[in-house]
Write a protein that binds this DNA or RNA. Structure first.
Length: 534
RNA sequence: CGGGGUGUAGCUCAGCUUGGUAGAGCGCUUGCUUCGGGAGCAAGAGGCCGCAGGUUCGAAUCCUGUCACCCCGACCA
């Protein structure tokens, strides 16, 4: 994380002095506010008039479309098919799995009427009021296990119908108390995979396979390093037997759960009556899984890569890879420069990269060049290329990379640029990953006693201490703590209350290592990961 | 649902204590000068001050009610 502060020059000069960073406040000054400002400055999304719901703007939606395109390919390559199920779930379906209902009951939007009629509203004025009450209320899906289960029970008769491997791209609604753009919104976009298998082993293989797909995507496409692990009982998906997750460490050292994969055992099969006859004619319940990632991934990319000048996009998922900025302030050469830029754009657009072709913006808007360049910096486009009359004469371009200082530009022969652009983008992609991974390693600590644990995180009411300057707490204490731990809901409850710390997961790649639980002293064979979390 | 707070121009807010009928910055439009760089100067557009009552000659300002949103908790992909 940068520790840059506004310089004295900035503080003492008149308002005409350019700020030292494009985003105010900086990450160090106020991380949550910085996050909001990046989302806005990068033109990714904005709050809507609907409580807790966001408008995803074209630049942000294009990023999501790239996430979708790549993941969708991965799902299909692992044998899954897409389908679509209703937004509305009859209340009775929801009640079938006891833990599931209990887990989601507090955050459901419920449809009770199907029409509007003129009438007197609660404030006494005339207007439209709901009419035509439904016999059975409909729940707007917070997740689709139950309604997909209803279909699965019809589709599955024989062991020959298994495995059933389905994915759905959809929106879901969870009526959260507090929302934040991309990280937690009332309505969000996601994919949910739902599968049914003949055996427990097969379902478990599927659960872990999809966790692997998510980890692969996070690391190789988002350039976001993740830990794979299993959730403890208290953090489990309502109704699941086991929940696995990928956890990433953000720049403020808080953890973000970036994806989950659940082994549902036979719980949902029993609730939805998903049964099949095996080769011997014996009837048994199927074993099911479900797994999902959401638009939260975009929040993860922001908090992993963005800096005090705005968004930094991983090239493989960037909506556009390069913006060409024609320098056309001399009227006599303006058209020639523009033509030159368009020809360059056309050549670039033929180059294959990361499963598509290079996407190019030619920004010929009639606004000042500096302003234009800064807008693209804030949007996080990987490469900016300026082309003016002088460059054109020498058949060269002036290139700036988003992963370097904004004044650090280099002149390249046009043909060399075209020939090396994918190499440059790949270098940036791996550079982002390496930087994020170094940040995580730097903020991961092996903790061997309770006192060490407490020192690492600080007590919850140390909020002021977390924020050197006083005022808005922005820098979180801690990071990932690796500690021997024997899962116990009571301990987790206490950690949450006292330190705002949760057990993120029991890593599945963690090496076996004998030790003692730092809380109970009981023997343990592996370390768990603890952190403050989003 | 508990505890705080705020509703005034597209955005961020000042004005309210001590009522006299609307302000700033940013953004937007136009002109001139600048410009391989987040420009300067000038002019301009834009608001029945959340809503409903009340007090008053007069309410953004005082009183009552109401709605909405925000922050801190419990919950969360």
């Amino acid at each position: 994380m940068s520790t840059e502060k506004p310089t004295e020059k900035n503080a003492s000069n008149s308002k005409s002095a350019a700020p030292t960073t494009a985003i105010t406040p900086t990450r160090a000054e106020n991380y949550p506010e910085w996050y909001q400002q990046v989302v806005r400055a990068a033109d990714l999304a904005e709050n809507s008039d609907v409580r807790g719901c966001m408008v995803i703007k074209p630049w942000g939606y294009a990023l999501w479309e790239n996430v979708q395109r790549v993941l969708d390919r991965m799902f299909k390559d692992t044998g899954h098919k897409n389908a679509y199920f209703p937004l509305f779930i009859p209340l009775s379906y929801f009640e079938k799995e006891a833990e599931h209902v209990e887990g989601f009951a507090k955050e459901c939007a419920v449809v009770t009427h199907h029409r509007l009629a003129p009438g007197k509203k609660a404030d006494g004025k005339m207007g439209l009021i709901p009419a035509g009450e439904l016999q059975e209320p409909l729940v707007v899906r917070p997740t689709s296990e139950t309604i997909i289960g209803a279909s699965f029970s019809k589709w599955v008769q024989s062991y020959r119908d298994l495995p059933l491997l389905i994915n759905q791209w959809a929106n879901v609604v969870r009526w959260e108390m507090r929302t934040r753009l991309f990280l937690r919104t009332t309505e969000f976009l996601w994919q949910e995979g739902h599968t049914a298998h003949a055996t427990s082993e097969e379902a478990m293989v599927e659960t872990l396979k999809m966790l692997e797909v998510y980890a692969d995507f996070a690391e190789n496409w988002m350039a976001m390093p993740v830990l794979k692990g299993e959730k403890t009982e208290g953090e489990r998906f309502p109704g699941a037997v086991n929940t696995y997750c990928i956890e990433a460490l953000m720049q403020d050292r808080k953890a973000l759960q970036a994806g989950t994969s659940h082994f549902l055992g036979q719980n949902f099969a029993k609730a939805s009556d998903i049964k099949f006859s095996d080769a011997n004619g014996a009837v048994s319940f199927a074993w099911t899984t479900s797994w999902g990632v959401s638009t939260r991934l975009i929040g993860g990319m922001i908090m992993t890569h963005a800096d005090d000048d705005g968004m930094v996009l991983p090239p493989r998922l960037a909506p556009s890879h390069v913006v060409i900025i024609p320098v056309t302030h001399k009227p006599e050469t303006a058209q020639a420069v523009l033509d030159y830029c368009n020809r360059l754009a056309a050549d670039l657009r033929r180059i294959p990269y990361a499963g598509r072709t290079i996407d190019v913006e030619v920004d010929a808007r009639d606004i000042r060049g500096g302003d234009k360049a800064w807008q693209w910096i804030k949007k996080g486009i990987p490469l900016r290329v300026e082309v003016g009359p002088r460059d054109m004469e020498q058949d060269s371009v002036f290139m700036a990379r988003r992963d370097r200082a904004h004044k650090d530009k280099q002149s390249l022969k046009r043909d060399d640029f075209v020939a090396t652009i994918t190499t440059i983008l790949e270098e940036m992609q791996s550079g982002l990953f390496a930087r994020a991974k170094a940040h995580r390693e730097h903020n991961t600590k092996r903790v061997d006693s309770r006192s060490e644990f407490e020192a690492f995180f600080g007590a919850r009411n140390d909020a002021e201490a977390e924020d050197g300057a006083g005022g808005t707490a922005s820098v979180v204490m801690g990071g990932f703590a690796l500690a021997h731990y024997c899962p116990d809901p009571k301990i987790e409850e206490e950690l949450k209350t006292k330190f705002a710390v949760t057990c993120r997961c029991l890593p599945i790649d963690g090496a076996e290592e004998p030790g003692k639980c730092i809380f109970s002293g009981k023997p343990s064979t592996r370390r768990a990961v603890f952190a403050k979390a989003y």
